[in-house]
Design a protein around this nucleic acid. Structure first.
Length: 454
DNA sequence: AATCCGGGGAC
DNA sequence: GTCCCAGGATT
């Protein structure tokens, strides 16, 4: 058979198959470019089943480009809570504001204009143009590369940028005249339902007869893909600080910096337990030094708290880091004679860690830039301590924080540029937390760690 | 070209 | 537990 005939077979049979087997998905019920856009951003790195409830809630809360553009960022982030890759949410809202200002609130149909939107790359631009406007543009995602690499027996590494370009050229040629909308979705649908990564369902595949990969017995070895390098391990010490006095019934949380990992998400305070020695796991830290270090990091941020007991262990896996968390239940210390003692322990723990970090960083590795641990020598300098001891905890105005939602929240202080808050259970439905902290805090408020305390 | 960004599902 | 999935931004 010729290549031309193989291509025609693919296009015709795939399209026929899709018209019968297409799934009924929320974003397929209307031809609304905004719905297409939102769904495609959500579907990046994320499964359809996961996206569906998020999509429905998101569209319910932000039904138009304008509604999204005008919403508080905190609210958009809250609607993304648990989906991951949170820069998608911030880019999506930034792009909605682009659409309002540059295009009067209407999705542009011009390729350059779509591509210029924040968070829209080659795949998403092709998906929007083809699905929303039926333009004959390729939309090459992982599904498409898997399907094409098998059907046409392409051995190129799909992790290479050049391969994606090659696939885009091929995918563009396959689009039947006037059928870009259905065909591109058919391609991805086949990858999701039939031409699956591990155990493809070749026997029910509409294009199996001319699939070069299957004929060569290569369906399980394609696509060729270099493995990602394993995530680096990090041992972290987490504080659940139980408020006392005015903060009774509340726990201490903080908001992460505006850039980097989990940008602007809320979390429990935590500290890196050991400098990441290249390649090897740090392993858990004994309770005594861990508690001293944790108290020290809280102290450096302006909080006097005493770690009481190990509440639980937890793990949180990112694509490039794996956090092993030792979670300590701590109690807030009202100003008392205990503070200097905590400070002394903290100072010793801090000095030890700083020394270890200096040794490891001078060896080779770049100094860790994570703002959530004690990276700056001098944070605990005597004058800093003295100034902290001599003044009252400053009561901040909640200007950084979304207004009405946090009316019952008491802000207590600020250290090293991070915003800290004492929150109760009712505050959590307006603040966005990564799943791991959502679980830990919910468990705490549900009383899960009560029994570990004496 | 390599690295930074989450989280979930299948087995 | 262990494996797999993988777009866009940044550098």
């Amino acid at each position: 058979m010729g290549l031309l005939e193989q291509k025609r077979h693919f296009s015709v049979n795939l399209l026929d198959w899709y018209m019968v087997n297409r799934r009924d998905l929320p974003w397929r019920r209307h031809n609304n470019p905004y719905f297409t856009w939102v769904s495609e951003i959500m579907l990046q790195q994320t499964r359809v089943d996961t996206v569906i409830p998020y999509f429905n809630r998101f569209i319910g809360n932000f039904p138009t480009v304008q509604a999204l553009a005008e919403a508080p960022e905190e609210e958009v982030l809250k609607n993304w809570e648990g989906l991951g890759y949170y820069s998608r949410a911030r880019n999506l809202q930034a792009a909605a504001r682009q659409v309002m200002e540059l295009h009067g609130g209407e999705m542009p149909q011009d390729k350059q204009a779509v591509f210029a939107l924040k968070g829209v790359g080659p795949y998403t631009a092709g998906a929007i143009l083809s699905i929303a406007f039926n333009q004959p543009q390729p939309a090459v995602d992982g599904n498409v590369m898997r399907v094409l690499s098998r059907y046409f027996l392409i051995d190129e590494d799909i992790m290479k940028g050049s391969t994606r370009v090659l696939m885009e050229e091929l995918a563009g040629e396959l689009i039947p005249e006037g059928r870009a909308r259905d065909f591109n979705q058919a391609l991805m649908e086949l990858g999701a339902l039939v031409c699956t990564p591990k155990a493809p369902h070749c026997l029910t595949c509409p294009v199996m007869e001319q699939c070069s990969g299957r004929i060569a017995g290569r369906e399980l070895t394609l696509p060729v893909k270099t493995k990602a390098k394993p995530p680096r391990p990090e041992q972290r010490l987490v504080a659940i600080v139980e408020g006392r006095g005015a903060h009774r019934g509340r726990v201490l949380v903080r908001q992460r910096p505006a850039t980097g990992l989990l940008a602007r998400m809320w979390e429990l305070p935590h500290v890196l337990a050991a400098p990441a020695a290249a390649g090897k796991a740090a392993g858990p830290l004994a309770d005594e030094p861990a508690m001293a270090l944790l108290a020290g990091s809280l102290w450096a941020e302006g909080f006097a708290a005493r770690p009481e007991v190990l509440a639980t262990h937890a793990e949180h896996v990112f694509s490039h880091i794996v956090w092993s968390l030792q979670v300590y239940k701590c109690t807030e210390q009202d100003q008392s004679n205990e503070l200097p003692l905590i400070a002394a322990e903290a100072r010793a723990a801090y000095d030890a860690q700083a020394a270890a970090r200096d040794r490891s960083s001078s060896a080779s590795a770049a100094p860790e830039s994570d703002a959530t641990h004690l990276s700056e020598p001098g944070t605990l300098h005597a004058e800093n301590n003295a100034s902290f001891l001599s003044e009252e905890s400053e009561l901040m105005s909640p200007s950084d924080v979304s207004d009405s939602a946090l009316s019952t929240m008491t802000l207590t202080g600020k250290g090293d540029g991070l915003t800290y808050c004492w929150i109760g259970p009712e505050d959590m439905d307006k603040m966005a937390f990564p799943n791991i902290f959502l679980k830990l805090i919910s468990s705490y408020f549900a009383g899960a760690y009560d029994q570990v305390n004496d």
